[in-house]
């Protein structure tokens, strides 16, 4: 009986074997890929590499300005996307009744996540730069200031791109707060806003944070949409300007300037470098930095979410 059964299942044994091999193959490829980047890239990594400017027609030096630009753009992006996304999600989950209209919003948000990122670039150009920017220039008589590719418009465009990530994870987080906790709060005489502020949001915070981190990681890794929104090959100066109140000045990100971007830097160095073979170590180094950055962000998000789910599971 035992033997017979085994014999019959050779097909199954083979099939499951294939499934296992498939997965192992993928893991192997992934490890090779990451290993290659690590081995080739680790050599150039040093503090100088992370802070220095590119030198000698970009064949030497570091990636400091590209890192700065990435941080600046994603920072502004978060400033736009997170409040808008979180507030929208609060509206959808806490205030709006389930109507045809809200279902349309939800469907559109899901679909927005599938729009090719290059299309967001077109949108940024058509809407932010040529419509909003040009009109700002006209209204404030600033000459050509806002109506051209700049850090600000790269951030706003990326903000729209990551909006679905923020909204969807916030919705999930709000949804996971048990109804019984809201009932308890209302039962104690809290208003809707008090309930949201004191009961719902504190419990949803880790989930919202997870979404924010995922959004940053996505934004920092995007290249296509910013290609024509102000990402620059090389800039002698950081996009910084002094903001002065009276005599007191502090350096601030200048959102009207162009910027260097780590992901864009990799693309440019790999395809348009003056000497691609000589700069190969720099390319690997930059890639390693970008990968480590996105991995750290994603791992943080994963750990956050894991803790968050575990916490909820206990309630």
């Amino acid at each position: 009986m035992e033997l017979k059964k085994r014999k019959k299942d050779i097909a199954g044994f083979v099939s499951i074997g294939i499934v296992r091999i498939t997965f192992s193959f993928l893991v192997l490829i992934l490890l090779l890929l990451l290993g290659k980047i690590f081995i080739e890239g680790i050599g150039v990594i040093s503090l100088e590499f992370l802070i220095d400017e590119p030198r000698n027609n970009m064949t030497e030096g570091g990636i400091g300005p590209a890192i700065f630009g990435t941080v600046a753009v994603t920072l502004l992006m978060v400033l736009f996307a997170v409040p808008l996304g979180v507030f929208s999600a609060i509206y959808l989950n806490e205030y709006a009744k389930d109507t045809f209209f809200t279902r349309i919003i939800r469907t559109s948000i899901n679909n927005l996540a599938g729009v090719p990122s290059i299309v967001f670039g077109l949108f940024g150009l058509g809407f932010f730069i040529l419509f909003i920017g040009k009109n700002l220039d006209e209204v404030f008589q600033t000459g050509l200031l806002f109506g051209q590719p700049a850090l600000l418009w790269a951030s706003t465009t990326l903000a729209v791109l990551v909006l679905p990530i923020v909204i969807v994870s916030t919705l999930e987080a709000l949804n996971s707060v048990p109804k019984s906790h809201r009932d308890a709060s209302y039962g104690l005489g809290a208003t809707k806003w008090q309930t949201i502020k004191n009961v719902v949001l504190p419990q949803a915070r880790p989930g919202i944070l997870t979404g924010t981190i995922l959004a940053i990681s996505r934004g920092a890794g995007e290249t296509a949409p910013i290609l024509f929104l102000g990402a620059a090959f090389f800039l002698p100066n950081l996009p910084v300007a002094d903001l002065c109140i009276g005599d007191y000045c502090i350096p601030m990100i200048n959102p009207t300037e162009q910027f260097m971007y780590l992901a864009y830097h990799i693309f440019i160095m790999a395809t348009q470098s003056a000497n691609p073979t000589k700069t190969l170590p720099i390319q690997y180094g930059s890639t390693l930095v970008l990968i480590v950055l996105t991995f750290l962000l994603n791992i943080t998000a994963i750990i956050f979410r894991y803790r968050f789910r575990k916490l909820l599971g206990r309630l």
């Binding site: 048990p178 019984s180 005489g189």
Partner: peptide, 27 residues
């Protein structure tokens, strides 16, 4: 809201907030 404040409610399943004992009472 004033009505609910003056009519307390206790539910079938305990629905304490995931906060401290103290914070629950003073909510």
């Amino acid at each position: 809201v004033n009505l609910r404040k003056n009519v307390g409610m206790v539910f079938q399943k305990s629905n304490l907030f995931p906060k401290t004992v103290y914070e629950n009472i003073v909510y």
